[in-house]
Design a protein around this nucleic acid. Structure first.
Lengths: 350, 350
DNA sequence: GGGACTCTCTTGACCGGTACAGTACGCCTG
DNA sequence: CAGGCGTACTGTACCGGTCAAGAGAGTCCC
């Protein structure tokens, strides 16, 4: 590549300038870049040489996006602070998987923050070919914008409505496994540390997991003690778990919304002099990197986050291609490690 | 908002259709959406109502991008797998900070993966208003594309060349503090666990930190034992550190490229029956979340990652506005925790 | 009462490409 | 040698907006 003379007032180089220079039509120059099979190799070489000489880099992406009707980028809508999404191990892994899968398909990833003011609404104002909706309150105005825009949409970890493609994990089944595991071990006093959101019914995973836990507990007539805390700050889960454990009728087993919550619960137990799993069994959710690395290693519910990313990308690609993919529900499974055991002999039985 | 009748073959709604409907010029409709001060409130209301009725969502982002010459999105170029960027605590925190800062300025963030094939080169083919270059080999072809495109550019954690805006951390100064800390404690046998890249001289932080460590060690005539391992897989750092420590003349103090490497070093020491800090002092880098939470809490070099993100966004905004911001170098500082102590009495002195 | 000003809205050009339907020409075929 | 076909390139319309300058009607002020 030659280095073009970049004068400060240099006229912009477009297809037309190159066409003029070479003496062909603008369309032929366009083809030289975008559809090489449409012209002879000789002429193409000549055109590319002239383009290089003039300092032309390639078709302008914005113009191409308008003309072609697609941008080459897929949006990811995230409600709330983006930084939370990056800092949480599970969502970070999901983002990682999505970005890798997209780039394998020649697509970039545009992060669409929730709209803050009325002026600029990313979900309405940023050009993308499709959008993955992740960690979102389904009543979010941004989703409404996307729908009105008629943008291909895939919802992850939620079911906004029949007719919108979705990718989910079998939260309920996984939670059921977690609670059943405690039941099978003999626990009859069970605590739950779950996620609190502004409006609980809006959080799909939280609701589903609660249903799953209760599925197993109801079957044996166990009424759990439940605490719910927000994701941030992390100390809240610790405090909530501690309050639950600092009672004479404390649970002998706990199921938790996430591995992070489970770890907070383990710490809370330790602070009360309780040993895990001898005095308290704890089950997490997600099987994130935390779970295997913690001490003790956590029994947890595994979800395949990279598979979720791949499924989400496959689904959005299908919708962008005009299809209507069936809802995807990925399996979950119990991973038994060392944070669970039968209840100690001292446990009061009902 | 009314629900428009979405026939399958519905003609696309544009400014023109609304203009026809209301009986005004297309430009007036454009102004109704983009420059409300340019028309009377009455007419504007009438136009918006008609638009709503027709199911018009707002100006098409791609067309607007072409006409206005800006897209409302800033790119982030990352060499290598995007998933690494998400999974590493420090870079994830940086991304989080960048995305938050951008969204506060009404900008979306587009992740530009390194080009894999010749067909699609994100750095050349995705429309963005500016690009932050992060974790990149400066010889990357993608950077060359960006430069040829004449896109506003800010390089983070590197210095590509005079004339390109950059945001850096005082890696050398921080590393000097780390090594000086060990020297001050009395250590004279020092090991270094640093990052190995394909071509070492291309990794700016690794090179700068090495210079910093040597600054302090050279001053007292200490020749360190150095091992270098790639970032992935994590076990490599562990193995390398273990090899260094499993020798009679093992170091009494170690400085490490990152907190993750420092933790691997601590684990390696433990596996050899060495206590930290009694038998081995370890200093990390970054002061990531790992550092304070680990056992023992790590002495490390603090860098303000959120400030780095904010500085990067401020810089790219300045460049996009036509400015030429001065290179930014953010300070680093030593954080002394519990992984360092004077060398044990048995330590062989040279 | 007339010139300057303001407020509204319109006009025409332009942003930089791509799609699609031609056209021109050489070559094969029967 | 007419007819058919593939290759190589061109012409025109269009993608859906925004910008900058202009035009017409009130309003203000001396």
């Amino acid at each position: 590549m030659s280095v073009p003379i970049l004068g400060p007032a240099m006229a912009k180089v477009t297809l037309q300038s190159i066409a003029d220079r070479v003496g062909v039509s603008r369309m032929t120059v366009s083809n030289a870049f975008s559809r090489p099979d449409q012209l002879s190799a000789d002429l193409r070489a000549k055109i590319l040489a002239a383009a290089d000489e003039l300092g032309y880099v390639g078709p302008d992406p914005a113009a191409r996006a308008l003309a072609r009707g697609r941008t080459g980028s897929v949006g990811l809508l995230i409600n709330g602070s983006l930084s939370e999404a990056f800092e949480d191990a599970v969502s970070a892994a999901f983002l990682a998987s999505v970005s890798d899968e997209l780039s394998a398909r020649g697509l970039a990833l545009t992060l669409l923050p929730a709209s803050s003011d009325q002026q600029f609404v990313p979900a309405r104002d940023v050009a993308v070919d499709g959008v993955l909706v992740y960690i979102c309150d389904p009543t979010s105005p941004d989703i409404a914008w996307l729908e009105r825009r008629n943008v291909p949409l895939v919802v992850v970890d939620h079911n906004v409505r029949e007719g919108i493609a979705s990718v989910n994990v079998d939260d309920r089944g996984g939670a059921r496994l977690a609670a059943q595991h405690l039941v099978d071990l003999g626990h009859r006093q069970v605590g739950i540390v779950t996620l609190a959101t502004e409006q609980d019914e809006l959080n799909h995973p939280a609701r589903e997991r609660m249903l799953g836990w209760r599925d197993a507990l109801d079957a044996v007539g166990v009424e759990p003690s439940v605490v719910a805390t927000p994701y941030h700050p992390p100390t809240q889960a610790y405090d909530a778990a501690r309050a639950l454990l600092d009672r004479p009728d404390r649970p002998t087993g706990m199921v938790c919304f996430s591995d992070a919550f489970a770890l907070a619960t383990v710490r809370a137990a330790e602070s009360l002099g309780l040993r895990v799993p001898e005095d308290l069994s704890v089950v997490g959710f997600d099987d994130s990197v935390l779970a295997a690395a913690s001490r003790p290693p956590l029994t947890t519910v595994r979800q395949e986050v990279p598979a979720k990313g791949a499924a989400a990308v496959a689904a959005i690609a299908a919708v962008m291609a005009g299809g209507h993919p069936e809802p995807v529900v990925l399996p979950t499974g119990l991973v038994v490690r060392e944070s669970t055991a039968p209840p100690g002999p001292w446990a009061t039985s009902r």
